[in-house]
Design a protein around this nucleic acid. Structure first.
Lengths: 332, 332
DNA sequence: CTGAAAGCGCTAACAG
DNA sequence: CTGTTAGCGCTTTCAG
């Protein structure tokens, strides 16, 4: 078995309380004894067993972040922001649900188990009721994806406005036939629905009533984008511009367009969403909506820590950060 | 405070020992009492505090995976494999070091602290000595990146052979002027060095002595690839084919080539490494070396669990899994 | 089949 | 400034 605080105490000729004090240096210990204890700690290669400490203090200083997947690079800035905000008092533990409800539930057990002090959900399969219940007993927050009617601390952007801005960009260039590639509809993540609303509002502001034939509904991925373009090309009057709710969709659109000899950026303009690293690397570069990932990560952790430490008033606000549009070759 | 095993015991009119037994159903409890206890558990919304359990059992059933970053999609298959192999007895906690030694050390504290039972390093800043020391007291494993002279359980591919195969593909097509884009040299990750060795061996097998002017040394990223191509184009006799030790480098090369009107796939052939999702999406698709990520993840966890449970003989082998080459447009 | 009791490693009153 | 002691929530002998 490994070396414990007792072993250190014995070897240093002091009580365990004293060892604990030098470990946490929060109480007065004479410099001499502290020196002796530290010496012994080093000698014995002792490091405190946090299982004991955590049990006693009823906290772990760990925060769980549940990601839908690690495939999308969208989250890396957010994670960095979370880590920086948590440092040095808390560690961020990442875990992936693969967008399965049961996996997500299994991960949330860590909250029930007290293995972590709080959880941040970057996308969730839970509904508002489940989240509200959870929020009563535990410290949780949402980041990126809001959930309608969930009164839970949330950090996100205004997806409706972001989509509006993107589509307005097309409109301001004189484009009128503007396609949308989005997910399948009602049951979707609110962010998708919001983006669709923004698309429609922009059209409406320019006196255009949106037409379902210019909306292609599918999943989030690259191949869906390819299919989307094939569909649009089959129309009598194909769109001159396409707004995609993810960069992967946009990449698929562009790949398929290039394959068909369509010049992207002039003949067909394309805008994505998220500003993943791919967007810069693609040829042509993908014009896209950028979320302030790092700030979102910092903000959600800071607010969450506030909630954890000031139990009096729990902040359940939805905090909106600013998006921006990154212009690249696919829509100059 | 939350409800404990004591509360359950009292409410069910049994001892805490009995509650513990039904919780772990490993000891005989009468069906009736079990039913009563389960009823009470549900009623009170009790879930066991793992801090107590873990302290008592001296294990957490958590395994830490330290990633250099979450930016690279390379790891997502590996992570899925690890999770599947760990399920349902263990959880995989992810964490990122951002390739900083001090961050990595801080994360390894979780091992010392007993917050996790084991750790898998997908790339490390530690040297062989540090790893060997660590391996004496804790359960660790390496995945993807081997470390020279580290006698630690490792799961990886044969990077030297993989690079050999990729370069041989060029040679078999009659290419003789073959460029290499790799990292800066001696201090690098062994995988990079191995790939360089494979490159040189393939050339040697075809009677070509490798020429430093055909080797561009930089970092791993997209912009480095662009710079690499610029450099090669400045040569009197630019290479006809370029082997890059990462797909991002290959993407940079291709982007810059297209920008300069070089036709990629015929005039210039390019091969990457890792088969990240970008490779398929790029135009042209990137020919690349694929690592069996899912299998690597499964394997490393299975072997690690063996080590954790059969303390008698610790397996410190290096396990090599098979790579393959994925042919796409950048080198048909 | 069940209960009593010890103890995992640590912290935090409390007393001195 | 330091030691004694109780106890965090749980599991697991040991008796019965």
């Amino acid at each position: 078995m490994s070396v414990t605080i007792k072993d250190v105490a014995k070897a240093a000729g002091v009580s365990v309380a004293t060892v604990s004090r030098v470990l946490n240096n929060n109480a007065a210990v004479s410099d001499e004894t502290a020196a002796v204890v530290n010496e012994v700690i080093k000698e014995l290669g002792y490091s405190p067993n946090f299982l004991g400490r955590n049990l006693r203090k009823c906290e772990t200083n760990n925060i769980l972040a549940i990601l839908p997947s690690t495939e999308h690079t969208v989250y890396s800035d957010i994670i960095k922001g979370m880590q920086d905000a948590a440092f040095p008092n808390y560690d961020i533990l990442l875990s992936t649900s693969n967008s399965y409800l049961d996996t997500e539930m299994r991960l949330l057990e860590m909250l029930f188990n007290r293995t972590v002090d709080a959880a941040v959900l970057l996308g969730t399969q839970l509904d508002a009721n489940a989240l509200n219940d959870l929020n009563k007993r535990y410290n949780i927050a949402l980041c990126c994806e809001r959930v309608t009617d969930a009164k839970v601390l949330t950090v996100t952007i205004n997806n409706e406005q972001a989509a509006y801005d993107a589509v307005k960009m097309f409109l301001d260039k004189g484009k009128r036939k503007i396609g949308l590639i989005t997910t399948s509809g009602v049951t979707d993540a609110p962010s998708s629905a919001d983006r669709e609303l923004g698309y429609k509002r922009a059209l409406a502001d320019y006196g255009i009533t949106s037409d379902e034939k210019y909306i292609f509904r599918c999943s989030y991925d690259y191949t869906d984008g390819r299919n989307g373009l094939k569909y649009f090309m089959s129309l009598d009057e194909p769109p001159e511009a396409i707004f995609c709710i993810s960069d992967l969709l946009a990449a698929g659109v562009i790949k398929e367009a290039l394959k068909n000899g369509i010049s992207v950026g002039s003949e067909l303009q394309v805008c994505g969403f998220d500003n993943i690293s791919l967007s810069e690397m693609y040829t042509p570069g993908i014009t896209t909506v950028s979320q302030p990932g790092y700030d979102m990560g910092r903000t959600v952790i800071n607010k969450l820590l506030d909630n954890m430490h000031n139990s009096a008033f729990k902040n359940n606000d939805t905090i909106i950060l600013n998006h921006s549009i990154i212009m690249r070759g696919s829509a100059k």
